[in-house]
Design a protein around this nucleic acid. Structure first.
Lengths: 223, 223
DNA sequence: GTCTATACAAAGATAGAC
DNA sequence: GTCTATCTTTGTATAGAC
């Protein structure tokens, strides 16, 4: 009998607690899961990550993850979504800034990109995996057509090299900035190139990339 | 009783068959599995591929696969190993040919690489996954130190741009050639860029890449 | 609305007969 | 070497407490 009363008390308490901390608690639980998930996914890859591990390390019940996120794949996509956002969308303002010259844009892109990826080295490869894993979702998220294909940057590339194809130059420059990070494991794995050495090279590249790109564009027009 | 006799007969028959076709059978079975596995893995990815599907399509028993290859992961690695070989080792003779000039090497690399990847579009992304998944295995396989870092190509890059870092140029050129294929799903997913359009762009790139690279190197020395 | 315990199904790995 | 049967792991779904 006392049990029932306790139960009612408890329920009242829970309600109060819920009302007060509802969003905060839910937030922290979900965020905790997402945080652990990101770490696990980026360390072990999709198939190398076990939902039970995520649940355990996040200190939540396994089924709770399936309550909040519908499936492992869904959780993965959600987490990677933010990485994609980081890797691509953050440059869009730079691309469309009408105030800066092409030369300034090249420098800005180099600085922003390489700094970002030095901070988060796993970003490129995992975004690539996600692109490969779910191209449609990726395409629907980033407005490649309008925000990039129609960017001020592209117009400026066309101006700089009217006989060339601006999209080619766009891809080339992204390759110059991003590709070394794809090759990083190849170079560092055998101990030939150390981590510090690699980072130093990337900082050097950060300075050289705009110069190289201008050389490519400069085939037609001198700077 | 008759069962036992049949069984003995059967065993004798199996032995004869085994003696006659042993190696040929084993070979063809293993190769068949690897062939199907490659197709499945490159189409559906690692986690999207089921061992039961591979076994079924190869016409072999599921457990037999685990007898020949120790695990799904092991099979994947074995298959991808050959792709890695294709993607990296095949350029090593070109890099170390003492007869060709740097300019010729740039053209050869562009032709060979882009042709190869047009034939096998999934190669770069899957090799990249494998690199990321198992860097040590990759590193032990390809002699990055001697065959690439010590290649004639690198010496020639240093000659062309003495003030620059030849390894940087090596990476840059690989990026120019390979990176577009990483971005392919991004560009084709939303229908903005068609497959034929992409291929046309890659053929254009095949011609332009050496020119661009010479522009980069030409900052110091005119051609 | 949030969480726990539990059941279930799919898929990878293994033991042992032949 | 090959196959059958079985075990284990792991992702997913459900019932029900609070």
């Amino acid at each position: 009998m006392g049990y029932k009363i306790l139960s009612i008390f408890n329920r009242q308490f829970q309600k109060m607690k819920a009302k007060k901390e509802k969003s905060a608690d839910a937030q922290s639980t979900i965020e905790k899961i997402k945080s652990v998930a990101r770490s696990e996914f980026t360390t072990n890859g999709y198939s190398g990550t076990k939902t039970r591990d995520i649940a355990e390390k996040a200190g939540v019940n396994l089924a709770l993850m399936n309550y909040h996120f519908r499936s492992k794949e869904n959780l993965f996509d959600l987490v990677m979504q933010e990485s994609i956002e980081k890797l691509f969308s953050f440059i869009i303002p730079t691309l469309n800034d009408l105030q800066t010259s092409l030369e300034e844009k090249l420098s800005l892109l180099s600085e922003q990109y390489i700094s970002l990826i030095i901070r988060e080295p796993n970003l490129p490869i995992f975004v690539l995996n996600e692109i490969h894993h779910n191209p449609e979702r990726f395409a629907s998220h980033i407005k490649f057509n309008t925000e990039i294909m129609g960017s001020h940057y592209l117009v400026q590339l066309k101006e700089a090299d009217p006989s060339g194809e601006p999209v080619q130059h766009l891809i080339t420059y992204l390759g110059i900035l991003l590709f070394p990070f794809f090759m990083r494991p190849v170079m560092t794995a055998n101990g030939q190139v150390g981590n510090n050495q690699f980072l130093a090279a990337m900082l050097q590249r950060q300075k050289m990339a705009p110069v190289w790109m201008k050389a490519i564009l400069g085939i037609s027009i001198p700077w």
